[in-house]
Structures are given as structure tokens and as C-alpha cells.
Amino acid sequence: KVILLEDVKGLGKKGDVVEVKDGYARNFLIPQGLAVEATKGNLKEL
């Protein structure tokens, strides 16, 4: 699961917690600054 930092077409809006494949999160969303891993600490910051 990841928390979206920006609106991502076809996935969700900023602040949404979405389930995506590990590779998509690690190789695209997180490096592009579009999402962060949905850890307990990150979820509390919402």
C-alpha cells in the first residue's frame, strides 16, 4: 500500500491510500515523488 502525494490518473487523488504492485510503487511512484509507503508513521501524518 502507498499514500499518494499527488493526484495520479487512474489510481486516485492526493492523500488516498491505495494498493499497488510492489514493483510499480518502488520503480515508478516513489522515485517520481508521487507516493510514499503506507507505514504506520506515514498514516499518522495524514
Rank of each mutant, 00 (worst) to 15 (best):
A38F: 12
I3W: 07
K13S: 09
F28K: 04
E19L: 13
V8E: 01
A38L: 06
V36I: 12
N42H: 08
E6K: 14
G15K: 03
L5K: 08
E6P: 00
A25N: 03
K13Y: 12
D7Q: 06
E6L: 14
A35N: 00
A25R: 03
G10F: 12
Q32M: 11
A35Y: 02
V8Y: 05
A35I: 02
L11N: 00
Q32W: 15
I3T: 05
L34I: 10
L43S: 04
A38Y: 14
K13Q: 11
K13R: 13
A25V: 06
V8A: 02
D7M: 08
E6T: 15
K40F: 15
K9R: 13
L43K: 06
N42G: 06
K14N: 03
I30N: 02
K21W: 13
K1L: 11
G23F: 14
Y24R: 04
I3G: 00
E19H: 11
E45C: 10
E37V: 11
L34Y: 10
V18E: 01
K13P: 02
K9E: 11
G33A: 07
V2W: 15
L11C: 05
V2Q: 01
G41F: 04
K9Q: 11
G12F: 01
V20S: 03
G23Q: 11
E37L: 14
F28Q: 04
T39L: 07
N27T: 12
G12P: 00
V17N: 04
V2D: 00
V18L: 10
L29K: 01
L29H: 01
K9N: 11
K13N: 09
K9Y: 15
L4F: 02
K40V: 15
G12L: 00
L5I: 10
T39H: 07
G12C: 01
R26N: 07
G23C: 13
V17Q: 07
D7Y: 12
G10I: 03
E45Q: 10
P31R: 15
D22V: 14
V8N: 01
I3Y: 12
D16N: 07
V18K: 05
D16T: 13
V8W: 04
Y24H: 06
K40T: 14
G10C: 12
K1E: 07
K13M: 10
L11H: 03
G33Y: 05
G33T: 03
V17Y: 07
D16S: 10
N27F: 15
L4N: 00
I30E: 02
V20R: 01
G23Y: 14
K9I: 12
Q32I: 06
V18T: 03
D7H: 10
G41I: 09
K44T: 11
T39Y: 07
L11S: 02
L29G: 01
L34F: 10
V8Q: 03
K1C: 09
L43A: 04
K9C: 09
V18H: 02
V36N: 04
A38P: 06
K44C: 11
G10R: 06
K21I: 12
K9L: 12
I3N: 02
E19F: 14
D22F: 14
F28T: 05
Q32V: 07
L5T: 08
V20E: 02
L34E: 01
E6I: 13
K21R: 14
I30C: 04
E37P: 10
Q32G: 09
V20L: 04
V20C: 10
G10H: 09
Y24Q: 04
G23T: 14
N27A: 12
K40H: 13
Q32C: 14
V18M: 08
K44L: 15
G10K: 05
N27S: 12
K13W: 13
L29F: 02
G23R: 11
T39N: 11
L4V: 01
G12M: 00
I30M: 05
L29P: 01
L46I: 15
L5W: 03
K13T: 08
G33I: 03
G15W: 13
T39M: 06
G33F: 08
K1I: 10
N42T: 07
T39C: 08
R26F: 10
F28R: 04
K1H: 10
R26L: 08
D7A: 10
G41S: 13
I3S: 03
K40S: 12
V20G: 02
G15E: 02
V2H: 04
T39R: 05
K21G: 12
I30V: 08
K14Y: 04
N27E: 09
I3K: 07
I30H: 02
K44N: 15
T39P: 09
L34T: 03
V18N: 01
V36W: 05
G41R: 11
G10N: 12
A35R: 00
K40G: 10
V2Y: 15
Q32T: 10
L29D: 01
V20K: 00
L5E: 02
P31S: 15
Q32A: 13
D22R: 14
R26K: 08
P31G: 13
N42V: 06
P31Y: 15
Y24C: 05
L4M: 04
L34G: 01
G41K: 14
K21E: 13
N42K: 06
V36A: 09
K1S: 11
L43M: 06
L4H: 00
D22T: 14
V36Q: 08
A38D: 08
L43W: 04
L46Q: 15
E19R: 12
G12D: 00
E45K: 07
L46D: 14
G23N: 13
A25M: 13
G41W: 03
G33D: 03
V18F: 04
P31K: 15
V2G: 01
V18C: 06
V18A: 04
R26W: 13
K21F: 14
K1G: 04
I3L: 12
Q32Y: 14
A38Q: 06
K9A: 13
K44E: 15
E6M: 15
V17F: 06
P31E: 13
L34K: 10
A25K: 06
V8C: 06
E45M: 04
A38T: 07
D7V: 05
R26D: 05
F28H: 06
G33Q: 09
L11G: 01
E6D: 10
R26S: 08
K14G: 04
V17M: 08
V18W: 03
V20A: 03
G15Q: 03
Y24I: 07
D7I: 05
V36R: 09
K21P: 14
L46R: 13
F28M: 05
G12T: 00
K40A: 15
A35Q: 01
E45G: 11
F28C: 04
L46Y: 09
V8L: 08
E45F: 05
D16Y: 08
G15V: 00
G41N: 13
N27R: 14
R26G: 05
A35E: 01
L29A: 01
